[in-house]
Design a protein around this nucleic acid. Structure first.
Length: 370
DNA sequence: CAGGCGTGGAC
DNA sequence: TGTCCAAGCCT
């Protein structure tokens, strides 16, 4: 479809689509925790967790998060470490930091009452065009599209839209189409119905377009090209990276470092890592000494290597594949340098926000169950 | 704009 | 094991 082509659906067809979609939704919508009410704070928390994350994964995190931080005020006032801990294992950790920042913005700039328009909502940290549209439509009945992966896929199929959804500029094409079709009487339900459709009959893999309630409106189905849509360029495969993970133990516990706020696994705690390409060969004791000195150990500190036999741990991220060789060492406690580092006794491991990759290391060392 | 940013499930 | 995917946002 080009920008100059006339809109392919008549007003009558648009009305029929809305009726069909919403009738199906009213009878078949999933019973999800965040559909119990339409409070903007609840919508914000759920939509943030749902970014690039499946419903099944989010449900327990959502329940626990709202128990711990029941109001936007409570989240704004909470210690940041507590928020990161609540996010542990969910991934994309900047979402947690941004979510709390947004709560603080609402408290500080809006006296605790959420702004009610998509345009204003987008000024809050972590809220982009999708989440703003979702909150505005669901909580405040604004006629605003909420264009996520489901909406891209559903409308690409309904209209056989060939534009590459991986390109940012494509959003405008879909925004234009959806504004034509969205039901102005029930924008929030319309957006959620599209998502339910996109996760059932019109899912990415193994779709069931034949039995879809909107099969009659589905141009890709009518032309036998369901799997040709949406058009989306593929992402590069993960780059392999080899690390040594330094598991340094003293009577005070294990040496952990807090990762920088920006970048991967920001604010979370891990063993110090050394990229293997920074090393000549395997880790000589002298190199371990050198590394320990960076954390504050004096030159004479004795480090005894232990348990060299652990198999490496692998962990794949979206864009990197890590292989980590664990180097365990025993030492006397030394005072840590200015780095964001701590000695962590084993009972306190549970109170730190640890990424899954760190938990894998601990499991391999049998310091964590499972 | 392109690329960075996690994790778990499905196949 | 590899590959792709899932209710995106930030820089």
């Amino acid at each position: 479809m080009t920008e100059t082509a006339p809109f392919p659906w008549s007003d009558k067809k648009i009305a029929a689509f809305r009726e069909t979609l919403l009738t199906w939704y009213d009878q078949n919508k999933r019973d999800l925790p965040w559909r119990r009410d339409h409070k903007p704070y609840h919508v914000l928390v759920s939509e943030t967790m749902l970014q690039q994350t499946q419903v099944q994964t989010v449900i327990p995190y959502y329940e626990a998060f709202l128990t711990q931080f029941p109001t936007v005020q409570a989240l704004a006032d909470a210690p940041q470490a507590q928020v990161m801990k609540a996010w542990e294992g969910l991934g994309y950790y900047s979402r947690a930091r941004h979510l709390q920042e947004a709560a603080q913005q609402v408290v500080r700039d809006y006296a605790g009452n959420f702004p009610t328009t998509a345009v204003e909502l987008q000024t809050l940290q972590g809220i982009g065009p999708y989440t703003a549209g979702a909150i505005a439509s669901i909580a405040f009945n604004e006629v605003a599209p909420a264009i996520d992966g489901n909406a891209f896929r559903v409308f690409a199929r309904l209209f056989c839209i060939e534009d590459d959804i991986a390109k940012p500029q494509t959003r405008a094409v879909f925004d234009c189409v959806i504004r034509r079709v969205i039901d102005p009487a029930r924008p929030g339900d319309f957006n959620q119905a599209i998502m339910d459709l996109g996760s059932t009959y019109m899912r990415a893999s193994d779709p069931d377009a034949e039995h879809s309630p909107v099969a009659a409106f589905d141009a890709s189905f009518q032309s036998g090209r369901v799997l040709d849509f949406p058009v989306k360029t593929k992402k590069p495969r993960p780059v392999p990276i080899a690390y040594l993970a330094l598991a340094i133990h003293s009577p005070a516990g294990w040496l952990f470092m807090q990762r920088p706020q920006t970048g991967m696994l920001g604010d979370l705690w891990m063993f110090p890592l050394i990229a293997e390409d920074e090393l000549e060969e395997t880790l000589a004791p002298a190199r371990l000494q050198e590394a320990a000195q960076q954390f504050g150990a004096e030159a004479g500190t004795t480090l005894t290597l232990s348990d060299p036999g652990l198999r490496p741990v692998t962990h794949t991220f979206t864009h990197q594949k890590w292989t980590m060789t664990i180097v365990q060492a025993e030492t006397d406690e030394f005072s840590l340098a200015t780095l964001p580092a701590r000695w962590v006794p084993e009972p306190e491991l549970a109170s730190l926000a640890l990424p899954t990759v760190q938990k894998k290391l601990l499991r391999r060392m049998q310091l964590l169950k499972e």
